[in-house]
Write a protein that binds this DNA or RNA. Structure first.
Lengths: 105, 105
DNA sequence: ATGATGTGCAACTCTGGAGTTGCAGTCGGT
DNA sequence: ACCGACTGCAACTCCAGAGTTGCACATCAT
């Protein structure tokens, strides 16, 4: 029964356009309109992506006057990484245990 | 420009049924038919999911007589975790650097 | 040899989500 | 006050993928 924060996180990360947005934001905060200038998609599409990213905590809105700039946040990504690593190690640990039994240790 | 192995990996992980399969396999190797007995989906659906999981290296087929059992593999998951953590730390490092400049250090 | 079980392939339906356009509202600058 | 730029909401199209059914093939046991 997988943590229910993981699934939306992976869904958010399973889109190339969103990675483009994250990459762009990685070089500096930007608004949806600014991003629409750099990427080959409409502003509204980007706004939707930003909403998805914000929902899972990968991005954070910062009001600057009348525009809304977004900033990437690494915390959730690192937290997700920790969970993934734990699961992966868990699987391999089971395999190692079985292997030891099979080898008569 | 995100690594092109990450996107398929996240796509694979962004499905609840596949996590159910992975969880089931986490308790022991099993064939598609065996999994179809435990999960509320057809064998063919499970076979497709297993193909996706195998494609990204999360699962490994093992022929046992006429049946094909699948085994979970943690290596790719841990490798993905490492990449995610690196990216997350990179983002936060940039933020920390900006903050230091803003504080005049 | 034959029936039963397990696998593989193909065609089909259907829903979610990515992207679009259009319009209304809001705020800053001159 | 007015104009331009930025945001937000809604309705629409379109396609990838999750799931199904049906059938053909392979393999083990009796």
């Amino acid at each position: 029964m997988i943590s229910d924060t993981l699934l939306p996180m992976f869904a958010a990360l399973a889109d190339e356009t969103r990675w483009s947005i994250l990459a762009a934001l990685g070089e500096g905060d930007a608004s949806a309109s600014a991003l629409a200038g750099r990427l080959p998609v409409s502003r509204q599409a980007i706004a939707k992506h930003l909403a998805v990213l914000q929902e899972v905590g990968l991005v954070e809105p910062v009001r600057v006057g009348r525009e809304v700039r977004f900033r990437v946040v690494g915390a959730e990504l690192s937290a997700t990484a920790a969970k993934l690593d734990a699961i992966g190690r868990d699987w391999d640990r089971r395999l190692a245990a079985i292997k030891e039994i099979a080898e008569g240790l």
